[in-house]
């Protein structure tokens, strides 16, 4: 009894204090647009929400007010996917960051049975090529060194990445290993983290041996000289990381392109869907984005609306095939 009274006193005083202290802190308006980054701060999805969505859309005045960014990590984007499909199906003000990794998980059918058709695909506004990096003091100097270690001592060669086990970051390593003739791909020691940022910490602290991710996740660390990029999985060298060699140069013909884009809930109105497509198209074609994307190591790549939905469908089919070929899809 007395307890309940305290709770009321608590609410009263608490609200009063909060009300006064809130004046000093930013106050959000309700009903604003929201972007869900299906991973923690610091990775590629987070970037997709914060830069092209919240920043550029805001600067260009394409949305009212500011866009809130929510980080929802878990299951390589699966948690957010399930959340959007089951709980937010008709939220008109919501967009969600997506990438090749999302398509990869859908292709392997590991989003708890959810399909690509459970959401609507808005568009892509850039591509991020894969990269493999190590600590600057690492014993591995070239991609070849790492591949040899993976061959000889797979259990003790820890490779970290931001996607979940079997996800896109994992797949890229497996494709390289496959090209190098390693047969026991299941023995490769891949450890999944919430996003590229936390995975990178494992490299900086020297707990892990190698990092698999995307170039945009490495640009800053490369500039500071904390890491060595062993290979980028791009057709040519990229200006944001000029010294990094491509895998192809080192004899492994692997290209891993990770497009970055958005999806929205399925049951929003057609008018609103078209509005979102329009907004993303405008962002993708803006000079501000062209500048920002190049700085962050993204290569130009765009696709919108209906075309994009077909493109994602195609990507999903491709991943399903690769996963089958590598032998870990049931």
């Amino acid at each position: 009894m007395r307890n309940s009274m305290q709770s009321i006193l608590g609410i009263l005083t608490g609200t009063a204090i909060a009300a006064t202290t809130m004046l000093g802190v930013a106050v959000a308006k309700p009903g604003n647009t929201e972007c869900i980054a299906p991973a923690g701060a610091g990775g590629g999805w987070d970037f997709t929400c914060r830069v092209p969505a919240a920043q550029v859309m805001g600067d260009m005045g394409l949305i009212d007010g500011t866009m809130a960014v929510t980080n929802m990590s878990g299951a390589g984007g699966g948690k957010a996917y399930a959340h959007v499909v089951t709980k937010r199906g008709d939220d008109e003000n919501l967009i969600v960051a997506a990438s090749m990794a999302t398509a990869a998980r859908l292709g392997q059918n590991v989003y708890s049975g959810f399909k690509a058709s459970d959401v609507r695909w808005v568009g892509a506004l850039g591509a991020d090529y894969g990269a493999i990096a190590v600590h600057k003091d690492s014993q591995f100097k070239t991609l070849g060194d790492l591949v040899t270690a993976m061959k000889d001592n797979p259990r003790r060669t820890a490779i970290v990445g931001g996607s979940s086990a079997g996800g896109w970051d994992h797949l890229k390593v497996l494709i390289v290993a496959d090209k190098a003739g390693i047969s026991d791909l299941k023995a490769i020691n891949y450890i999944s983290f919430d996003n590229g940022g936390t995975a990178m910490l494992e490299i900086l602290s020297k707990r892990a041996d190698a990092f698999t991710g995307d170039i945009s996740e490495l640009v800053e660390y490369d500039k500071q000289g904390n890491i060595r990029i062993l290979a980028i999985l791009a057709p040519d060298r990229i200006s944001a990381v000029p010294s990094a060699k491509t895998a192809k140069e080192q004899g492994y013909d692997v290209i891993g392109a990770n497009w970055r884009g958005f999806y929205v809930p399925k049951n929003i109105s057609a008018a609103r869907y078209n509005e979102w497509v329009d907004i993303v198209t405008k962002v993708a074609n803006s000079s501000q984005w062209a500048d920002l994307s190049a700085k962050n190591g993204l290569a130009p790549f765009t696709s919108f609306g209906k075309d994009f939905e077909n493109f994602v469908g195609g990507q999903i089919g491709k991943v399903a095939q690769i996963s089958n070929d590598l032998g870990f899809m049931k």
């Binding site: 305290q6 709770s7 006193l9 609410i11 609200t15 204090i17 809130a68």
Partner: peptide, 26 residues
Amino acid sequence: LEVPPATVMILFAGIYYGSQYGNSIS
């Protein structure tokens, strides 16, 4: 309401505090 997390934390801390004082009254 999508209140920023910093504000939420402050609100919670306020409740935590306030109810502690409420306790001393009873």
